[in-house]
Design a protein around this nucleic acid. Structure first.
Length: 853
RNA sequence: GCGGACGUGGUGGAAUUGGUAGACACGCAGGAUUUAGGUUCCUGUGGGGAAACUCGUGAGGGUUCGAGUCCCUCCGUCCGCACCA
């Protein structure tokens, strides 16, 4: 008996697959294509368990589809720009490029030990000029197409590091690195005009029926379409009206004040001559934008002294406040307050003594006595106290009032989106340079195409705070095509830009004259199956959808959507441990003692076993995949990833689980090894099987069908369970008798073939052992014989009044009358009926019989 | 606050359209092999009961011959969004 020598075998097969260039893809119009893609990793230096899960899932799909005859594209690359590289430069004095490429080298080697069916010839790194030069060219294309613009906007500014921070880098109002309170500043920033596609991005979500409902919903909320109206209020003593946006024009008769944002142009104008208003506005800016701050913040306002005239009630003058809860970047930055039907307005009105006029009457309430307490009434009802709207329901009133506003010329219907344009400027070094120049008068001049790419200078100093590109002595100084002096844009692009189009670059990774070859993207795109973490549900996936539209507009792509199918995997969790002082402990530093208590390995000190949480370096509850692959091999790690937990749910890493997977691989190998001599030669299975052999054949074909369906539905844990069940069945047959060689061969080979996409190395080894010259990776997926899909006889449970009382065995598809007779004759049925008269008998063919008495 | 998902043995989880709840594993218990541990193999394993039976899918109600699955109410856990007018 030979023991399966796993490490050597894994390396051997990986080498053979690579030598035969098995996974290198090329356009072949005679075959159906399948583009399987996982989210590419950030080259941090080491792969983690999340990667192992992600790429195991993707590889299963890729190998399965290949076996089914698809021309599969399964590429890999590196999301290689980003802040950690600059962090390493600051901390350890390594140049970001050097650090990044070293990490890529290490991680590639680690990934290769997983035995993934990846076309490595298409590998891309987004930090390479070969990649980002096309991004710069596209930026210029978008600029020409009106999809990029520059404007002044508010940003989170870290005054110590002298840089803009993304919202997620602001923690409790302070910079994540410097700890300094973040300021709001106005800066000139570049924007992608994603809002041009707001409606399309929203509507097209419906067509993405192979996306998780959850992700579509998150995008829907993010885009945040609302229907309402713009209303122009005449302001006393001013020519310009104040324009407000509202989704509740039906409550216009309940208006008791107007409010504008602290940074509304009107507020800024008034501030110039009103120091106390200016002080109030400054205070609002300091408030910060964190959720917590907003939650606790009181509704505050400042009376401007201005009055606006109600459009329908010429005698009513509404005071105009500057209020801290009104946002400049949503709608028009101005609202009308209807305290009776909006909670914020109610709180504000109570504080400043504004009237609360209910205009929507709840069903069944008395109009004479209905009043508003501490809670605004935001539900449906009948309009009252509202002149021409009285008696209407809310939707009708909205329509009616907007029609009237439009007729009067003081307002119109307006669709509003929460989605804002995508600000792409980052004051950082390690990103794609934005290819524009500024003349001395500030005019924007695109970098001429023949001067692309604009590359990053290599001699940079990271010791000073701020943007290294801006601080560089010479880089930014250049000349315009006409020779006049100019400066370069020193901001680089948000790293989400690179990941917004890499799926297209995978189709033509070596193409020099553009981001992609049309014929290749037209063949491969869209991606048939995209797999990754749900944390990218909104930003990355929405940006990619925008880029697809933008690239289509400028002529690179013909598709509507980049990702036909999306699957979001769950996280990998692990138990956490802490010592008595509350310090986190690594899993390897604790064990269970004889009494079943957790103690430290050295010293037997007590350990507090904490919650099962996402693996994270801060809690020290990580397991390094390379250690696992070293000890158990890639197949074991892959099998563990696929067993037990459904792939979209969180997976708890346990030693027991990895052991179980390891033991099963050996068991599978033993089955092949111990039976190899009694299988006969490879060849077709004779049709005349009977008795136990026929039963085994049926089990095999039922399994083929079940596993195929389970894989199609991403129920990989179910597929593993079905295969282990088949394994148990085969061993049962071996124990009880001697299956015919051809039948046994069919059973074992099928088991091996169906397992191949999950555990490719051991199955490839088994396949060779079973006498095949052709690689299993090149062998077709088994097809179930419909004639062998079910048993000839079925066991029918007999229920009496819905309770199971016995069972009968009948031929499949037996006649109803015969089944009824057999069921009623069954002793258990007779006993349970206790001689009571039969009222009804329900027979579900081949499923169940229910006797009602 | 708004939106969504999920609650099944000691544990992870199965259960096409409403049709034998607990597949497949982990763990545990007993046994065989082994110097021992581990590995491997066999048997058992939702609760109660000696058994016939009976109870059982977060709680309560409903629809149905039949409900983990459908409907209503409630509780709990997790996730996303949030002064968005």
């Amino acid at each position: 008996m030979s023991r399966y020598a796993l490490r050597a075998a894994e390396q051997k097969w990986q080498r053979i697959w690579e030598e035969r260039r098995l996974f290198e893809a090329r356009v072949d119009k005679t075959k159906p294509k399948y583009f399987a893609m996982e989210m590419f990793p950030y080259p941090s230096g080491r792969i983690h368990m999340g990667h192992v899960r992600n790429y195991t899932l993707g590889d299963l799909i890729a190998r399965y589809k290949r076996a089914q005859g698809f021309n599969v594209l399964h590429p890999m690359g590196w999301d290689a720009f980003g802040l950690p590289a600059e962090g390493a430069a600051i901390k350890r004095g390594i140049h970001p490029a050097k650090w990044t490429y070293a990490n890529i080298g290490e991680m590639r080697a680690q990934l290769k030990t997983m035995g993934l069916s990846i076309d490595w010839s298409r590998e891309i790194a987004t930090c390479s000029p070969e990649y980002y030069k096309h991004e710069q060219a596209m930026f210029l294309d978008f600029l020409e197409a009106g999809l990029v613009y520059r404007k002044e906007s508010w940003v989170n500014w870290d005054p110590v590091d002298n840089t803009v921070l993304a919202n997620e880098q602001v923690i409790d109002g302070k910079g994540w690195r410097s700890g300094a309170p973040v300021e709001r500043r106005k800066l000139n920033q570049w924007f992608f005009k994603i809002t041009d596609y707001a409606d399309d991005l929203l509507k097209s979500l419906e067509k993405l029926d192979r996306w998780p409902e959850k992700v579509r919903l998150m995008q829907q909320n993010w885009i945040g379409r609302s229907e309402g109206a713009k209303v122009r209020f005449a302001v006393e003593g001013r020519n310009e009206p104040l324009v407000v946006y509202t989704t509740r024009p039906d409550t216009l008769f309940g208006a008791s004040f107007l409010a504008i944002a602290p940074d509304h142009p009107l507020a800024e104008e008034l501030s110039r001559t009103n120091p106390s208003l200016r002080a109030f506005a400054e205070e609002c800016k300091l408030l910060g934008t964190s959720e917590e701050a907003l939650e606790k913040a009181e509704k505050k306002g400042f009376d401007t002294g201005l009055k606006a005239r109600h459009p329908f009630l010429p005698d009513v003058l509404l005071p105009i406040y500057v209020a801290n809860f009104v946002l400049m970047d949503y709608g028009t930055g101005a609202i009308f307050g209807c305290p009776a039907h909006d909670q914020r307005d109610l709180e504000f009105a109570r504080k400043y003594g504004r009237p609360v006029i209910p205009v929507v009457l709840p069903e069944g309430a008395d109009p004479e006595t209905f009043t508003i307490g501490d809670e605004a009434y935001t539900e449906d009802g009948r309009i009252f106290h509202s002149d021409f709207l009285d008696g209407l329901d809310v939707p009708t009133a909205k329509k009616t009032v907007i029609d009237r506003l439009e007729a009067m010329g003081v307002g119109e219907r307006q669709v509003q989106f929460r989605l804002r344009d995508w600000g792409l400027s980052r004051q950082r070094y390690w990103g794609c340079p934005i290819p524009v120049l500024y003349a001395e008068d500030g005019t924007v001049v695109p970098v001429p195409r023949d001067q692309l790419p604009v590359t990053l200078p290599e001699d940079v100093d990271f010791s000073k705070p701020g943007n290294p590109l801006d601080l560089h002595p010479s880089w930014k100084h250049t000349t315009l095509p006409d020779g006049r002096p100019a400066t370069r844009e020193t901001d680089t692009m948000d790293t989400f830009v690179e990941s917004s189009w890499y799926f297209a670059r995978y189709c033509s990774p070596d193409f020099e004259d553009g981001p992609c070859r049309k014929e290749e993207v037209d063949y491969w795109l869209p991606v048939d199956q995209y797999i990754g973490g749900v944390e990218h549900a909104v930003l990355h996936l929405l940006y990619s959808r925008f880029f697809t539209r933008a690239m289509r507009k400028v002529g690179y792509l013909s598709i509507d959507e980049p990702f036909q199918g999306l699957f979001t995997q769950g996280m990998i969790n692990h138990q956490t441990f802490q010592d008595e002082q509350g310090n986190w402990l690594e899993p390897g530093k604790v064990r269970k003692n004889d009494a079943g208590q957790w103690v430290t390995v050295d010293g037997e000190r007590p350990v507090k076993a904490g919650r099962v949480e996402k693996m994270s370096k801060s809690k020290l509850n990580t397991i390094d995949p390379t250690d696992i692959i070293q000890a158990y091999g890639a197949d074991t790690a892959r099998l563990f990833m696929l067993s037990d937990s459904p792939p979209d749910r969180d997976l708890e890493w346990t030693d027991g689980g990895i052991d179980g997977a390891w033991r099963y691989l050996n068991r599978l190998w033993r089955l092949v090894d111990e039976t190899r001599d009694r299988l006969g030669e490879p060849g077709p299975v004779p049709d005349q099987a009977s008795g136990a052999d026929l039963e085994l054949r049926r089990a095999v074909h039922v399994t083929i069908d079940g596993v195929t369906h389970a894989i199609e539905r991403f129920h990989f844990n179910k597929a593993v369970a079905l295969l282990r069940e088949l394994h148990n069945t085969i061993e049962g047959h071996l124990k009880r008798g001697q299956p015919g060689p051809a039948v046994l061969r069919e059973a074992i080979e099928t088991l091996v073939r169906l397992f191949n996409p999950m555990i490719p190395h051991v199955t490839e080894e088994a396949w060779a052992t079973l006498g095949h010259d052709r690689l299993l990776a090149e062998t077709d997926w088994p097809v179930a014989d419909p004639g062998l899909m079910g048993a000839e006889e079925v066991t029918l449970p007999i229920q009496v009044n819905g309770k199971r009382r016995g069972e009968i065995r009948v031929p499949k598809g037996a006649e109803r009358a015969a089944v009824e007779a057999a069921a009623l004759a069954e002793p258990g049925t007779v006993r349970a009926m206790e001689g009571k008269p039969l009222k009804k008998i329900i027979v579900v063919p081949d499923k169940i019989v229910n006797v009602v008495v």
